[in-house]
Design a protein around this nucleic acid. Sequence first.
DNA 1: ATATATTTTTAGACAAGACTAAAAATATTA
DNA 2: TAATATTTTTAGTCTTGTCTAAAAATATAT
Lengths: 218, 218
Amino acid sequence: MFTLSEENYLKAIYHLELDTVKGVSTNAIAKKLETKASSVSDMIKKLSEKDVVVYKKYKGVTLTVFGKKIAASIVRKHRLWEVFLVEKLNFSWDEVHDVAEQLEHIKSPKLVNQLDIFLGFPSHDPHGDPIPDKDGDLKTIEKSLLSTLEKNETGVCVGVNDSSSEFLKFLDKKEITLGKQIRVLEKEDFDDSLSIQIDGKKLSISNKIANNLYVQKS
Amino acid sequence: MFTLSEENYLKAIYHLELDTVKGVSTNAIAKKLETKASSVSDMIKKLSEKDVVVYKKYKGVTLTVFGKKIAASIVRKHRLWEVFLVEKLNFSWDEVHDVAEQLEHIKSPKLVNQLDIFLGFPSHDPHGDPIPDKDGDLKTIEKSLLSTLEKNETGVCVGVNDSSSEFLKFLDKKEITLGKQIRVLEKEDFDDSLSIQIDGKKLSISNKIANNLYVQKS
DNA sequence: ATATATTTTTAGACAAGACTAAAAATATTA
DNA sequence: TAATATTTTTAGTCTTGTCTAAAAATATAT
Ligand SMILES: [Mn+2]
Ligand SMILES: [Mn+2]
Ligand SMILES: [Mn+2]
Ligand SMILES: [Mn+2]
């Protein structure tokens, strides 16, 4: 059994491993968890005692197969709960994350299974992120940042890179929601801003936005 | 804000106060929480610092109005989650308690409200216990132990006194569920056992069972 | 009323998890 | 390669919540 704190470390390492080739650095973990590197050092020792990470002093850390399973199960719970909150309890997609951070630590295999059934086996959470299956595997769809699309290319909104409440609310205001089709009308070299077509309307989009929105090219 | 531990102490005191006239004793709390009296002593000091209990050395402890509100909100969450698990996720009534013990500590006012709405504002949990309203008030119905019914009296099953998994499973086996009508056919002086009629069938019930089943006289 | 039993509190210790400051290792730059 | 900068670990401290053992207060029985 893992403590709340251990689970949060495992999840952080899991997410960091997704975009690092080498082991995850102490500093990266500290930054993600808003804690101090010394605290991370301490915890890593405990986690490697429990055989969920491989740890070599000064060399960063890697999840073991077992550790990855644990981490994926927490991510699975997080995302299932987010779906529940949006689909069943009328939360909007910018309100769910903090509650899911709490709910992901509830320990009950039956609860997770039944929730999965109740929600109709969702494959993605409200932010377009894939939900790991029971074995911790996730099927990744190929998605591209909107900023990588060329002029006249089109794609369907499938996810966000930044899922902060601020960004999500901004998208709501602009009526950019997952599932909608976007066509790039113009790319400005000057500031890398985009002119896009969505819902038949023309919209101007800064580079910062285009860098945080995923589309599936179509 | 209160820690997990503090919340559990408040809830324990809340429950113990319901069947004690005087202050709740250190020992009673220790027994309920399966901890040591010395630990209770320590925690009580912290709780009285936070103005949720009134504490006089050696004199037992009482919840303040504020403390009772906190405790009731936890009980409210516990019971709402139990309803959710039974009504929506196909848990049986003997499986929900441990999961609800975890879920009751999730902090999100919106979650509780929306859950309440989603469940249709239930007034009682799967064990027949009343769900405190937003202000922490609960409307108690008058219920009596089955063992207090006289020969030929009838009542409707409305709750259990013992909500252990063992007892609940036993009731399931005998097909005694909340809402069913029971008539006392015979009372044995010898061992205080009962002969009852339920679902048109005759059933023999030990005193231990009759002492743990609540009915509303009809 | 005094002796005995029970309950409650205090004193002191420990584990988990975090922090600061300083030392050690590694990386970068000249 | 040597000097400097950065990262990581260690050492020592703190808080929370728990425990055991012993002291103090209260309750019960003779
Ligand atoms: Mn999230
Ligand atoms: Mn998400
Ligand atoms: Mn319960
Ligand atoms: Mn209940």
